[in-house]
Computed example of a mutant assay.
Amino acid sequence: MREFIGRSQHDSAGLEGRQVVLTGFVSRGGGGVDWHLNRLTVNCCAADARPLRVAVHGAGVAPAADSWVQVTGRWRAGAVDARSPVPHLDVLSVTAVPAPRNPYADRAPELAS
């Protein structure tokens, strides 16, 4: 998720038209956002935890809050608000997944072969 967020802000041309797969836990949306996909990253200890968040659109009913899901979607160009730089994703599919063994490690999702 960290890479997707960084590219959406600094190298967005590389995201245009591409499908991305992100894994995280669900939280409520607001302000026209259906819901948010989230991860927390920790560098040293809980005191330095940093949230990573992506606004999700088009999935119909949002999954249950705090549930873990894998989302396949496409970056929504031009939707980032400079005051709150959260990238937006138009969803193609949502799949419930178990919480990862280490929910604070932001690793790419494992895809079925």
Rank of each mutant, 00 (worst) to 15 (best):
M1Y: 02
R2P: 11
E3P: 04
E3V: 08
I5E: 02
G6C: 06
G6K: 10
S8E: 02
Q9F: 07
D11V: 14
D11T: 14
S12F: 15
S12V: 09
S12L: 12
A13Q: 11
A13H: 06
G14H: 11
G14C: 07
G14R: 15
L15M: 07
E16Y: 13
E16G: 08
G17F: 04
Q19G: 04
V20F: 03
V21W: 01
L22I: 06
T23S: 14
T23M: 12
T23A: 08
G24S: 12
G24V: 03
G24F: 00
F25L: 05
F25V: 04
S27V: 13
R28E: 05
G29K: 01
G31H: 11
G31P: 06
G31E: 05
G32T: 12
G32S: 13
D34A: 15
W35V: 01
H36F: 09
L37W: 01
L37R: 00
N38T: 04
L40C: 05
L40P: 00
T41W: 02
T41Q: 12
V42R: 05
N43T: 05
N43R: 13
N43W: 04
C44F: 06
C45K: 08
C45N: 10
A47C: 08
D48F: 15
R50L: 10
P51S: 12
P51R: 13
P51E: 08
L52P: 02
L52C: 09
L52S: 04
L52Y: 11
R53D: 04
A55H: 01
A55G: 10
A55D: 01
V56Y: 00
H57R: 15
H57F: 13
G58M: 14
G58F: 10
G58V: 07
A59V: 08
A59P: 01
A59G: 15
G60R: 08
G60V: 05
G60M: 09
V61P: 07
A62K: 02
P63E: 06
P63C: 12
P63T: 06
P63G: 08
A64V: 13
A65E: 11
D66R: 15
D66G: 11
S67Q: 10
S67R: 07
V69N: 00
W75D: 01
W75V: 02
A77Q: 06
G78S: 07
G78N: 07
A79W: 04
A79T: 04
V80A: 13
D81L: 15
D81Q: 14
A82V: 12
S84E: 08
P85M: 08
P85A: 07
V86S: 03
L89C: 05
L89N: 00
L92V: 13
L92F: 04
L92N: 03
V94H: 00
T95S: 12
T95I: 12
A96K: 12
V97S: 02
V97Q: 02
P98Y: 12
R101V: 09
R101D: 03
R101L: 10
Y104A: 09
Y104H: 13
A105V: 14
D106M: 04
R107E: 05
A108P: 10
P109E: 04
P109L: 15
E110M: 15
A112N: 07
A112D: 06
A112Q: 11
S113Q: 07
S113D: 09
S113N: 13
